[in-house]
């Protein structure tokens, strides 16, 4: 059987699209690249959050590829103001809704630049003041919209257009900022990391955050095929390896205390993750002792994460994901 025998008419398709058994907050036709992790993450977030929300979106890929006037991919009230003020825009929406006595939840969407760097102050203010806002950071570890420049979320040794490797440098010199700890230090009720590779876990966290009255924060590791230099078809594979190597710990904090983590059953070597991505290709240069040292360094960072966040599953049957990535017939796992 192949597509030549497909009998689905455009009308049936559109009807089917309208009647999907999930809330579609982000519609097709957006201009994200092939295999975009951020587009997927945004769809999953809106799907879990449901229709009664209002979104403040920072400048960035997500904003650009969803709203080329006169079109919009959003099916939710959505606003893009500027790059650095998303926390404050969201806070304003929340204050207004509160004053109007409406229960609508406010979501703030920003990339890592709009969260870790330029948007950090307004995020901090929003968190400290206790606004009932769920701030979602789509972390793709560089300024992708402007052409892959380094951000404070860019991991150590990664190549970006502003951290190119050369005879005197091996990519980004500094470490990826631990934004989750910083965010949690605002005494907020809930802060978590998630990955597009684990949609059930991601949606569970969104729903958890939606229930909490007060500021919450979720950082979603979202691969960028273009910026990281991998095949779009591998976005999930890459994201999954980031978790399985320990380089991106998937954890949950409540009032600064760690209350949950996605355990790793068999940690994979970091090279499994790095070798798939062009941004780390200089680390695989034959005969370069610096490359060997950097690889060892990154492995040490992963090992440290695993130890620090206690990611090794305990017991005989530690699952790498609490079963979050296990399929079963009928799709019930996605409930």
């Amino acid at each position: 059987m192949n597509e030549d025998t497909q009998t689905v008419t455009p009308e049936t398709l559109m009807q089917l699209r309208k009647n999907q058994p999930r809330f579609e907050g982000l519609e097709s036709g957006h201009r994200a690249c092939l295999g975009c992790g951020e587009a997927l993450a945004a769809r999953l977030v809106t799907e879990a959050a449901g229709p009664d929300v209002m979104i403040a979106n920072a400048t960035g890929c997500l904003e650009i590829f969803t709203t080329p006037w006169p079109e919009s991919a959003w099916r939710l009230p959505w606003m893009h103001s500027l790059f650095e003020n998303t926390g404050a825009i969201a806070a304003g929406m929340e204050a207004a809704l509160k004053a109007q006595g409406k229960p609508t939840k406010v979501l703030a969407f920003a990339g890592d630049g709009g969260t870790f760097d330029i948007g950090f102050q307004s995020l901090s203010g929003m968190l400290e003041r206790g606004h009932n806002v769920l701030f979602v950071c789509f972390d793709n570890e560089a300024y992708m919209n402007t052409g892959i420049q380094s951000s404070s979320s860019t991991p150590h040794a990664a190549m970006t257009t502003t951290s190119p490797p050369g005879s005197a440098r091996m990519g980004k010199q500094n470490l990826k900022k631990d934004i989750l700890s910083i965010v949690a230090a605002h005494h907020i009720p809930y802060a978590a990391t998630a990955s597009v590779a684990y949609p059930s876990d991601l949606r569970k966290k969104i729903r958890r955050a939606m229930e909490i009255e007060g500021p919450t924060f979720i950082q979603i590791h979202s691969p960028c095929p273009l910026g990281w230099g991998h095949d779009g078809a591998d976005s999930i594979k890459v994201a999954r390896l980031a978790v399985q190597t320990g380089l991106f710990p998937v954890i949950e904090l409540e009032s600064r205390e760690m209350i949950g983590s996605m355990p790793i059953r068999n940690p994979k070597p970091v090279t499994d993750y790095l070798v798939l991505q062009q941004r780390f290709r200089h680390l695989f240069q034959q005969g370069d002792v610096r490359a060997i040292e950097e690889l060892a360094h990154i492995q040490a960072l992963a090992d440290h994460n695993i130890k620090h966040f206690k990611l090794r599953g305990e017991g005989m049957d530690a699952q790498d994901s609490d079963g979050a990535d296990t399929v079963c017939r009928g799709g019930m796992r996605w409930a």
Binding site: N2, V8, L26, S28, A39, P199, V327, G330
Partner: peptide, 28 residues
């Protein structure tokens, strides 16, 4: 019928059907 394709498509280009489709799946 695990919903993986439906869940992971960044472009919402996989649609889920109620009934089994012409090709024996549950997605279009």
């Amino acid at each position: 019928r695990c919903d993986n394709c439906w869940t992971l498509c960044p472009d919402s280009a996989v649609l889920k059907t109620n009934e089994v489709t012409f090709d024996g799946s549950f997605y279009v």
